[in-house]
C-alpha cells in the first residue's frame, strides 16, 4: 500500500487553485490527511474541525463532488477535496457560517416566547429525532432551492421548524411560516442528504400538515 495522492482546492474567492499533496497510507480519513498536511507539509492550509468524530458538524467539505464530513470520510488515492459548495468561501476549506445566526434571527428559529418555566407536558419522540441536527450545513449545499433572499437556505430550516412545531412551548404558527417560506415548492428531488441521518421527508410531511 503506497502513498496517497490527493488534490485540495485552495485559495480565496476569485483566486482558487488546486494543490496536490502526497500523504502516507497511515492517513485513514480526510481529516487525518488535512491534519497531516498541516503538520508536516504546509501549515498555511485552512480547515475546520472540532470533535473529530461525527457529532459536532464543523468539518464539512466537498469530496469528489459530494458534501461530506471530513472526519467520517475515508481518504483515497486521487481524491479531490474542496470547500462546501454554494456557501460563501473564506479561504481554502473554510466557509462563512454567518448565515446561520442571520437565519436564526430572521426566522426566529428559537422557542417563542420564552416562558421562564419548566413545562410539564408530553414531548413527542419525533421532537428529539429532529433535534439531531448538528448544523453541518451539508444539506444546504446541495438543495437546488438554494437561496432565500440571497441567504443560504437549506433543508435544515425545515428540520428546525419541525422541531419547533413539536415543541410544546413554542407558540408561533410554524406551519404557516413553512408555507410562507415555500415548503410547497420543494419538488422532492431527493438531492438532499443529512450527515446526521435525518430523513427530511419526515419534516416536510409534518410541516405540510400531514398527520
Amino acid at each position: 500500500m503506497g502513498d496517497i495522492r490527493i488534490s485540495i482546492l485552495r485559495g480565496t474567492p476569485g483566486e482558487q487553485y488546486w494543490q496536490e499533496f502526497t500523504i502516507p497510507p497511515t492517513c485513514e480519513t480526510v481529516l487525518d490527511a488535512l491534519q497531516w498536511i498541516y503538520r508536516h507539509e504546509d501549515n498555511s492550509l485552512a480547515f475546520r474541525y472540532d470533535c473529530r468524530f461525527k457529532h459536532c458538524g464543523l468539518c464539512g467539505v466537498t469530496v469528489d463532488g459530494r458534501a461530506k464530513l471530513a472526519c467520517m470520510t475515508r481518504v483515497k488515492d486521487g481524491m479531490e477535496i474542496g470547500p462546501l459548495q454554494n456557501l460563501p468561501l473564506v479561504r481554502d476549506l473554510v466557509i462563512d457560517r454567518s448565515s446561520l445566526p442571520r437565519l436564526t434571527e430572521q426566522l426566529q428559529l428559537y422557542v417563542v416566547p420564552e416562558t421562564g418555566e419548566t413545562i410539564a407536558g408530553k414531548v413527542s419522540a419525533d421532537y428529539f429525532y429532529f433535534a439531531r441536527c448538528n448544523e453541518c450545513l451539508i444539506c444546504a449545499t446541495v438543495c437546488p432551492a438554494g437561496k432565500n433572499e440571497g441567504e443560504i437556505f437549506g433543508p435544515f430550516v425545515w428540520v428546525r421548524l419541525a422541531q419547533l412545531y413539536l415543541d410544546p412551548r413554542d407558540k408561533m404558527d410554524r406551519l404557516a411560516q413553512a408555507a410562507e417560506l415555500g415548503i410547497n415548492g420543494c419538488n422532492g428531488c431527493g438531492e438532499c442528504s443529512c450527515a446526521a441521518g435525518i430523513n427530511f421527508k419526515k419534516a416536510l410531511q409534518l410541516l405540510k400538515g400531514a398527520k
Binding site: G116, T118, I119, G121
Partner: peptide
C-alpha cells in the same frame, strides 16, 4: 428550569 428556559428539553415519560 434554568436549562429549559433557554430552549432545551429533557426527556419526559408518556405522561409528560
Amino acid at each position: 428550569a434554568e436549562v429549559e428556559r433557554i430552549g432545551h428539553l429533557f426527556r419526559r415519560d408518556e405522561r409528560g
